[in-house]
């Protein structure tokens, strides 16, 4: 299917725990256009993943409505596909077999095989199609997971910190791969991440979730439109400024000038 729009209307989620009702999300309003990449950023435990799971029908909202292309999300919605933080591959299936798991029900055998081969080629695993998950690296497993999600031909691709467990270099490669995939098959992408740079590199808009410290539960604190077209220069000053603002919003000290420490251009003399 083609890229679908997603809309969150006054979405809230509370969990019943032994200690009582715990509000995680409240009053989340967000419109995501078809084909857009939106990164959801926030501190640990603020409900980013919960919001994504609600969008995919893996969880349900306790208040409000999430809809895809104007109709409400159903449990395990077939219009969306999820890439989890862990690859979650079936260990007894090969890479190709795992990608095939993502094919929509009723795909014919030959069409399915072609599609799986194409997707494995797309994520660069053609030489490893017959390998088992335990025989490939973490980055390759995560690529397999991405290919499996794409096999579903989703209108909305939901990625829950998909590169979080990878080493820094592999993560940068995976980000580029995701952009290539998005360019090849435009789909709406909701990406949960805790990595500000990743959000700025990939997204059209960055949504900052957080709590104001008074009302329980997180809502949208800020929406940042990321300037420029992808792929963006990882070192640009404009992104650095945005990065500072987002880190500020996350409650992270920027150090240096922002804290009132004078920046010096000369080497200080002893005694400092």
């Amino acid at each position: 299917m083609t890229a679908a729009s997603v809309s969150f209307r006054a979405v809230g989620r509370a969990f019943d725990t032994n200690a009582g009702r715990r509000q995680v999300l409240r009053d989340v309003d967000l419109e995501v256009a078809a084909g857009e990449i939106v990164a959801i950023l926030g501190p640990s435990g603020c409900g980013k993943s919960t919001l994504l799971r609600i969008a995919g029908g893996l969880d349900h909202a306790s208040a409000g409505v999430v809809s895809v292309d104007g109709t409400a999300v159903v449990p395990f919605d077939p219009r969306s596909a999820v890439g989890f933080q862990e690859p979650r591959l079936l260990p007894w299936r090969t890479v190709a077999g795992n990608v095939a798991l993502g094919l929509p029900r009723g795909t014919s055998k030959t069409a399915g095989r072609d599609k799986v081969a194409r997707l494995i080629e797309l994520v660069g695993l053609a030489d490893f199609a017959g390998h088992r998950p335990r025989e490939i690296s973490g980055g390759m497993a995560q690529r397999t997971s991405l290919a499996r999600a794409l096999a579903r031909n989703p209108g909305v691709l939901l990625l829950d910190e998909p590169f979080g467990a990878l080493d820094a270099l592999t993560r940068l490669k995976m980000q580029d791969l995701l952009l290539d995939v998005h360019a090849a098959a435009p789909t709406t992408v909701l990406l949960v991440t805790h990595d500000v740079d990743e959000a700025l590199q990939l997204a059209d808009r960055v949504v900052l979730l957080g709590s104001d410290g008074e009302a329980p539960g997180a809502d949208i604190r800020q929406i940042v439109v990321v300037p420029g077209s992808r792929p963006r220069d990882r070192g640009s000053a404009e992104l650095a400024e945005l990065r500072g603002r987002l880190l500020d919003g996350l409650g992270i000290d920027r150090h240096g000038a922002a804290r009132g420490i004078e920046a010096t251009t000369t080497i200080p003399h002893y005694p400092y």
């Binding site: 994520v123 690529r143 580029d176 290539d180 360019a183």
Partner: peptide
Amino acid sequence: MTDASHAALSTGAAIHD
């Protein structure tokens, strides 16, 4: 998609700049 960019995709180590 051009042939070159396809090659980059298929290797999984895409180079943009």
